[in-house]
Design a protein around this nucleic acid. Sequence first.
DNA 1: GTCTATAAGTCGATAGAC
DNA 2: GTCTATCGACTTATAGAC
Lengths: 192, 192
Amino acid sequence: MQDKSKKEVIMDCAAKLFRKKGYKGTSMRDIAQEVGVEAASLYNHIQNKQQLLRESLMIIAHLFTKGMEDVNNTSLSDIAKFEELIRLHVRLSVKHTDKISIITSEWVHLNEPALSEYLQLRTAYEEKFKHIIKACIQDGSFKQVNTDIALFSTLSTLHWLYSWYSKNRDISPVELEYQMIHCLMDGLRIRA
Amino acid sequence: MQDKSKKEVIMDCAAKLFRKKGYKGTSMRDIAQEVGVEAASLYNHIQNKQQLLRESLMIIAHLFTKGMEDVNNTSLSDIAKFEELIRLHVRLSVKHTDKISIITSEWVHLNEPALSEYLQLRTAYEEKFKHIIKACIQDGSFKQVNTDIALFSTLSTLHWLYSWYSKNRDISPVELEYQMIHCLMDGLRIRA
DNA sequence: GTCTATAAGTCGATAGAC
DNA sequence: GTCTATCGACTTATAGAC
């Protein structure tokens, strides 16, 4: 495996600190200390602090967008697509834990025009997710639920996977995928 | 209804801004502008910025703790207690939308000893919630799910109610309670 | 109780030596 | 490419006039 470039090291350290203390709560001096250099040295590899937030966020946003496209390009049934999206979230949460936390809570600190670009990607993603839920209702595999609430409830759980997974690393990703699908699709109660 | 004290006005303005821009992203000048005074004037009513975060957060934490006690002091069945907790979250999210957002994402900026005090309350709350889920499994009303995942999934959805409710104020709180209970307990799929 | 003025510190970012 | 030194803006909070 190729060594990380210095920029990648900086991006990873920044994501780790943004997660722990937030974007505004993390100084360039904090990031420099984590990397092991002085703050001024960071600017030989990056333009500014905002770039660290923007690039981490956009990398993840495009991974979700690409994942959604891949799922929609299959000939799977709608309910199988729904399951595949849950697996996508689990996979990305396990692999990019720190950066995922940024997309969940630090996107508000994005400057324009990156903010609008990000929100457009997110809205498009959510609309496609909702479309699949609606299709599941129409083909009779899902109940006649309020689709907005179903979407919100599903995404809330998936957005916070990263925080839960950090504290429970003993469960395997495959087992986690199975449990999440079961929990979200079938609920808790025995007799519905 | 009694008029709000100046301190309450400041607390509400601060909560609103903390929600929008985060604790670290909100300056005392921002809060002062929202209140309609100069920044220095705030200090006649409050001690410091940290107090604004701490008090808002503790008010909500104690409302949840009190709500959990009330539920556990009833003679309801365990599954009815679970439903009652969902109603508690919906009720508090609707009534204290801004302050709830702080407890979800800004608690990391609490200084000690308030941070430890808050985490202790939160852990105790989660343990009691988990205990009710376990009781529901034991009495046969819930499936044999992973209780940690069931707890996490339920709380994630409930924690983000406030953000969803802000954008969908057309649904009534009572209808929202019903939909949330149905969604979390019965899932989406028709045949489990 | 509100204001102006300001202290004392931290922030992101740059200049220039090496 | 890293460092030291520093700029200018912004931060929380206080002092003291009114």
